[in-house]
Structure formats: C-alpha cells, structure tokens
Write a protein that binds this DNA or RNA. Structure first.
Lengths: 239, 239
DNA sequence: AAGTGGTCTAGACCACTGA
DNA sequence: CAGTGGTCTAGACCACTTG
C-alpha cells in the first residue's frame, strides 16, 4: 500500500468526508487527531489541517483545541449570499439603473429602529428614503437611517445624485453587520412607490451595521414583486 | 523599523485591508505579488497567502494565477446563512416540534418543477406535502418532489413519522444545491394549512439538489407570517 | 498540566493563464 | 512561455480548553 500518489488537501477532505458519510464516524463522534490522520493517510499534518478547515467551514465537523474534532450532530445547509450594491445588481441584469431620492430629513428614531441598533436611548438620525430603478421602473425601495454622529460626512454627500447605499459601502467599513430577510404585505405607500398593488407580497432585506460599538446605518430594502435572492452551493460529495 | 513582533496572518490581512480602505490600492488596482508583500511586511509568503485567502473569501479582492491580485471593483456584502433542519430550528427556539404528513403521491412533475431541475423531459416523482409544527402551531409548510429514480430508498421510509427533510439531509449527500428566497401571497390552501389568512405575505425558501447530474429533490419551504431569516457578519475593520 | 488544534517558516514544486 | 498564485512538506512553537 504505497502512497505513491501525491495527496492534495481535497483528496484528504474527501477521504475524511467519505468516512463520515459511510458512518465510520457518525454524528457526534470524535475523529482521530490531525497528526494521527496525517500518518494514516500519508500526508503532512498541515494538509490535514487544510482539509479540516474546509469541512469545518462547510459545517460538517466542529473543531476545538484540546477538545478535538467532532462530526456535527445536526447537519446544516450552509450557503453564502452575495449582496451587491443595488446599482451593480441592476446593471448585471442588463438594465439601465436609475435612482430617485424620495425623502431626507433628520428625526428622532422610532423604537423599532433603536431596537435594530440595540440602543435604549432614542437619538436623532438622518432618515433617507430612496427608490432604485431598473429600466425606468421601480426596482427596490430603500428606507434608511444613518447616524449623523458616527458618520458626520453624510451631511456633505449629495444624496439626490448618489445613493446612500453606494456611498456608505464605498466609504464606511463596518465591524459588524446584522442581516434579516422577511416578507411583508405592500402598504398603500409601498404600492404607490413601487408601482404595484397593496397586499402584494414583498421580500425585504434589512441590514444594520456598526463600527465598533457605534451605529452606522440600518436599512430596509423593499423589493418589487417577483424578486428572488439566489445562491448555489457546491457540495463536496459525489463523483 | 525592526519587525520585532511576530505577525499573524490576521495582522497581515488587516494591514493589506487598511491599504485598500485608505485607497493606497483603489478599486480595480493590482496589488503587489505575494512574495513582494511578504518581504515588505516581514513574514513568510505562506502567511500572506493565508491573509489573501481571507480577503478573497470576504469578496474584497480577486486573485488569479498569473493575473495577480486585484481589489474588487464592486464591493459586495457577503453573508453566510445556516439553514438547519426544521426540527432543530424549532427546538432551538425552545418549542416542541411536531410533524404531519399531508400528502404523498407519485405524479408527473409540472413544468415549473422540471425547470427547477433543468430537465426538459417530464418524469414522475414522489410528491410530498408536510407540515412542521412548533408548540402545536403550524410553523413551516413543505412542498416537495423527490426523484424516485435517484433515491429509490425513499419508498421504504415511513414519511408519516419522519420528515423527508430530515431523512434526506441525513442520508443523501448532494453535489449541488440551488437556493432561492422570495415572498408569496398566501393562497386559500396555504392559509388553511398554516392557520393564517389568504393574502398574508410569506417567506419561501426553495432548495433543489442534485447528485452529479441526477436530481434528488426540490422543496418549497413556506413559512408562517413573521418568519425571519437571520445572519451576522463579522467585518474585519475597526478596533 | 497536558492534549489538541492553530499558526508560522523556508523552501520546493505545481498549475493555471495572460501577454 | 513565463509570471503569479496554489499547494505540499517538515518541523517548531503557540494558545486554547478541558480533565
């Protein structure tokens, strides 16, 4: 049984994954330590590490120092979502992008927005509403609050030309971002802005960002009917 | 300027990231090659590699052999979603999980389902409808088609006890999975099953899986009103 | 305190792919 | 075909975390 072939970390990953699939190591079981597997499979420990990181990133195993590597008890489907800035998304669909500022005013944040930021004391922020268009038709309605305290420069941005979405993504890195997806019934107001009917079902993407402990922005991106979020997973199984 | 400190790959990542944020390297720019950066920062090339892989995974840079490393032109928000099996999800909310099989019958797949699988020839599959309950109340309605050809064992599974969701996740690895999220208006049928009103807005998660070229299953998981998908991103900026 | 995963290094070779 | 990223190795040391 000579290890004549050079094993890549993907080979190693698949070898280990296979043992999990065929129940050599069942859910919750502890796997041999890296060094042991390296010896067994005939490669460097670093290579086993690389393979394990992939399995760990995919949610198949869990690793802890001293605790060892265990097969995860409950399988999860782990997907990666890419959310581009809205202009790019429109352009990638070969449509002409348009943008309209609907409203821009400083105001005291309502409790629901304070809750998004995990703030107890109500403060004043810049409230921005805007419409993103694709081929002249409404595409996404954006309802946003920006902290003037954390992002004072926002006052100097001409938001009637450039969307806050774009400016913030390009200029304000964040250290934490919370995301939420849910469905809402279109209100009269939504219907009017998005050129659709009340009670239509709309997908909403809500994003809240902080830099350190300081709130940056929270935004509800309300999509038009039929909008879909897509993603794809490449599993590490099969031929 | 002695490199007295031992640089970790995170230090290196942050150093490079910072140069991107402060526009030393702007969108689209080419970064120095790994070896050059390693020299510059005073670490091994492997360490730069590790840092770069992270930046690349986060969607901040793009790397190509021979092409070099470039700052991505359009920033994206990249999020990771974990979708557990429904039973786990319910239990993690400290609710009691329940399950009901609503329908199970072999039938010719409708064109929309064939489209999900990218199939042109209509075939027969097992059509399963089921209800997942949390604390006796409807939680998610599952509308699924399973390929009896790819997964003949499904015939022997007692689907009145065990959900197809769970059995498939535990027993059928896939090599590809397509995911879609969108909103729908509840139909009369949905309303009745989910104990809500017609026209409510519902979040739908649609998943389609294959093993190699062979279809395994496609499922629409229709949630109850108020359902939210959550995730969090840890950015690599700030203190 | 000891076991196990995480990281770093230095060097070699491989594998894409753009000029 | 040559430049650049990708991977592998062997060995050392570090840093968690649990028994």
């Amino acid at each position: 049984m000579a290890e004549s072939v050079r094993l890549s970390w993907k080979n190693v990953r698949d070898a280990i994954h296979e043992r999990i699939l065929d129940s050599t190591y069942g859910p919750g079981d502890k796997l041999p330590k890296d060094a042991r597997l390296a010896e067994e499979l005939g490669c460097a420990r670093t290579t086993v590490q690389r393979a394990m990181r992939d399995l760990s990133d995919s949610g198949i195993v869990e690793r802890r120092r001293k605790g060892g590597t265990h097969v995860r008890l409950d399988p999860v489907t782990r997907a990666t979502l890419d959310i581009p800035i809205t202009r790019r998304e429109v352009e990638q669909n070969d449509a002409v992008y348009g943008y309209q500022l609907v409203k821009k005013v400083s105001a005291k944040i309502p409790p629901s927005i304070a809750a998004n930021f995990e703030l107890s004391t109500p403060t004043t922020m810049l409230h921005i509403e805007a419409l993103h268009l694709a081929d002249q038709r409404p595409y996404i309605y954006e309802d946003r609050w920006v902290s003037e305290h954390t992002v004072p420069e926002i006052a100097d941005v001409d938001l009637s030309t450039e969307s806050a979405n774009e400016w913030l993504v390009r200029n304000r890195p964040y250290s934490r971002c919370d995301l939420r997806f849910f469905a809402i019934k279109a209100s009269e107001y939504h219907a009017k802005l998005l050129d659709t009917s009340p009670n239509e079902a709309l997908l909403v993407m809500e994003r809240t960002t902080w830099i350190g402990k300081n709130p940056i922005t929270t935004v509800k991106a309300v999509s038009t009917p039929g909008y879909q979020l897509l993603t794809q997973i490449q599993g590490s199984a099969g031929p």
